[in-house]
Design a protein around this nucleic acid. Structure first.
Lengths: 201, 201
DNA sequence: CTCGATCCATGACTTTTGTCATGGCGGAGT
DNA sequence: ACTCCGCCATGACAAAAGTCATGGATCGAG
C-alpha cells in the first residue's frame, strides 16, 4: 500500500484527485492539504511514501516545500504536479532531487502510474517539458539582477525600488536595463513577463 | 438522468471531475472537451442538459462560449467553473444568463449538487464572490479605453500601439493616462494588472 | 602575483512615458 | 434649437524609464 499526501490549493482539484487515487487498490491517500505550511506539518505527522506537490501555493511555493521535505523526510518521494512547464522550475526541481515532474495537461489515468513508478524509485519527467528545458538556455541572470527584477514585480517605480534595495536609482535602472538586454525584452514589463514565463524568478 | 458536458482545458482536472460526476447515479457525463470550439461542437451534437464551463480556455474564453450556447442551445443550463473570482466575469456571466458560477476553491462534493440545482432551474452563485462583486464598483472604462488597454497587453511600445490602432501616439498616451487615473495605477503595467484582476478586459 | 573575467555600483545622457489644456463631435435633456 | 456632458482625438510639456561609459571588488587561471 502506497501512502500518498496531496498538496494542491484548488480545493476542487484536490478533492477530485484524492477521490480518483483512492479508487486505486494499492494507493491510500493519507492526507490532502492546500498550503505549504500544512504540507510540511502533515508530512511530518503522516510520513507518506509519496507527496504530490503543486507549485503554485498561497504561502510557500511547492519547490521550497520539496526542498524542505528532502531534508525533513528523505524517505518521501516527491512528485511535482503543475500547470506550467517553466524550464526554470524543472531545473530547480531536479536540484531538489524530486522523483517526478508531471503537467496538469496530462491525462488523469497517468497519475496513479506516476505515483507507483515514483514509489518504485523511478525518475519521471514529462517528455515535452524536458525537451523544452534543454532547448531553453540556462538562466542568464546574475543573483543581483534576479533580486532587482523580483522586487520590480511589486514596486512599480524606480524610486521605490532604489529605496527598498538600498541602491541608487541609476544602479537600479542599470540592472533592469541589463536584464532587459539579456532577455530580449523592450521594457520592464516584458522582462518580468518572460522571466516569469521561464520560471527564472 | 442529467446529461453533462465538461469544458476544461487542464486534462487532469477534466478527467478527474468527469470521473467524480460519473459516480453520481443521476448524472451522466456525455462529453468532456478542452477547447471552446470543441465545446460548441459537442454541445450541438450531444445536446447536454448542463454544461460546466471553465473561463480560461486556449481559444475562446468560457464566457463567449456561454453567450454562444445561450442562442444555439437554449435548453442547456450553463455553469461557470473558474479559478478566479473576477467581479467583471460574474457580471458578464449574469448578462449571458448563466445558471451558476462556482469557484475551483469550492469542495468537490458541492459540484454534483450544483449540477442538480442548475438543472432544476435554480441560480447558483458563490456567496463570497457575489459580495465582492457588489463591493467593487462597475467597470469605469470607456469602450475605447478598454480597446487601448487590451491592445497594450500585446504591443509594449506606444509607437506600436499607435500604428496598430490607427491613432496618434499622443492619443494613445492620453487613453492610457486616463485609464491609469481611473484605476489608481501608477503606470501602464499596474493598470493592466488591476484591470485584468477585476476581469475588465 | 598578475591578468582577465564577472559582478556590483554609479552618474551623465537619450528616449520613452505620462500629464495637461484644448477642441471637435454626437446624444440627452430642457 | 440650444446647451451640457461624456467620449474621442491631438500636440506641447514634464517626468519617468532605459542606455552608455566607467570604475572598484572579487575570484580563478596561468
Amino acid at each position: 500500500m502506497i501512502d500518498v499526501l496531496i498538496v494542491e490549493d484548488q480545493t476542487l482539484l484536490r478533492d477530485a484527485v484524492s477521490a480518483l487515487l483512492s479508487l486505486e487498490p494499492d494507493i491510500s491517500v493519507v492526507g490532502a492539504v492546500g498550503t505549504g505550511a500544512d504540507a510540511l506539518d502533515a508530512a511530518a505527522r503522516l510520513r507518506p511514501d509519496v507527496a504530490l506537490l503543486d507549485i503554485e501555493l498561497p504561502d510557500l511555493d511547492g519547490l521550497s516545500v520539496a526542498e524542505a521535505l528532502a531534508t525533513s523526510l528523505p524517505s518521501c518521494r516527491v512528485v511535482i504536479v503543475t500547470t506550467f512547464g517553466r524550464p526554470g522550475y524543472l531545473r530547480r526541481a531536479m536540484a531538489a532531487n524530486v522523483a517526478g515532474f508531471v503537467l496538469k495537461e496530462a491525462p488523469a489515468a497517468e497519475l496513479a502510474s506516476v505515483v507507483r513508478r515514483a514509489h518504485a524509485g523511478e525518475q519521471i519527467v514529462d517528455a515535452a517539458l524536458a525537451l523544452s528545458t534543454l532547448r531553453e538556455g540556462d538562466d542568464p541572470l546574475t543573483p543581483r539582477e534576479r533580486d532587482v527584477l523580483r522586487a520590480a514585480r511589486v514596486h512599480s517605480t524606480v524610486a521605490e525600488l532604489a529605496e527598498h534595495l538600498y541602491l541608487s536609482e541609476g544602479t537600479v535602472r542599470n540592472y533592469l536595463s541589463s536584464v532587459m538586454h539579456k532577455l530580449g525584452a523592450r521594457n520592464r514589463a516584458e522582462a518580468i513577463a518572460t522571466a516569469e514565463q521561464k520560471g527564472w524568478l
